[in-house]
Amino acid sequence: MEWKQTPSGGLPGDLANDPLIRRQQTRVIYLYLLITILLFFDRWLNGMLLTQLQPSFFVNQMNVTMWGQMLTGIHEVFINNPNACKWADALLLLLPLVYTALHLKNKVSLKLATGLGILIFNFVYVQCYVVYPSNSIEGHIGWLIFPVVLLCHNPVKFSLALRFIRYALLYFFVSAGLWKIRNAGLFYPDQMSATILYQHTALLVTAPDSFLSSAYYWLAGHSVISYLLYLAATLLELAFVIGFFTVKADKILLLLFFVFMITDILVMRIKYWEISYLIIPLFFSTKEIFSIRPSR
């Protein structure tokens, strides 16, 4: 929408100081901070912080940007170096806290500089973190791209950046569905049964009589039911395509996101919460901050 007045009655050029817009911007940043804290503690509780992983060796990956970073040797800094790991983990939490404080104090220049710091730091941290045996880099896409929003103070740019993140979320899911068609996994009836065996071999062998193993054995032995789960997951992913045409279904997409995450944990034992940053726009897509359009 193009406002003749700001939502709170000010002039269009005064959007940055409009109390409603400012409040919604602050809520986005609070949500960003909350997700950061939750992910940090989730890592801590599960021993997945850099400090707890105690990196002692690394593995190469087919990633051109990562190769560029590795040429600097920065990933070797954390090998057998607990102090460097502790500093990196601390910054992971501290930088967003500082950013939020600067936003509340309305220190615009310092805030934007911190936002840039978060963007660069996350980029380096994530690319180091995943070369040690930890997690896949794909799940860290939220860590990598959400800080783009933190580079924007101007409400118009802030709004455009939020919409960009929303499109990234939609792409994440829709492309995951398209890959299952392109690589033909969707057309292989035994896909999910074989995947369950492949994914849980160590669990099935080391704890064959546990409840989980019984459930996975049952799924592995019932190809049709397993395949229906795979089909449902693919359809769920493809359903996100609706978001490219309307924001009206965003609350449903939010629900689908949580259904996907929980099912992924139960069936595949994969936690994908790291991408949660990408769902922040879904909470705001019907709010004024999301519908700001630049005046001509």
Partner: peptide
């Protein structure tokens, strides 16, 4: 990135 996790045919 590509988000093609478990999209390739996984045989027994």
């Amino acid at each position: 990135f590509n988000y093609g996790m478990y999209s390739e045919k996984i045989p027994y």
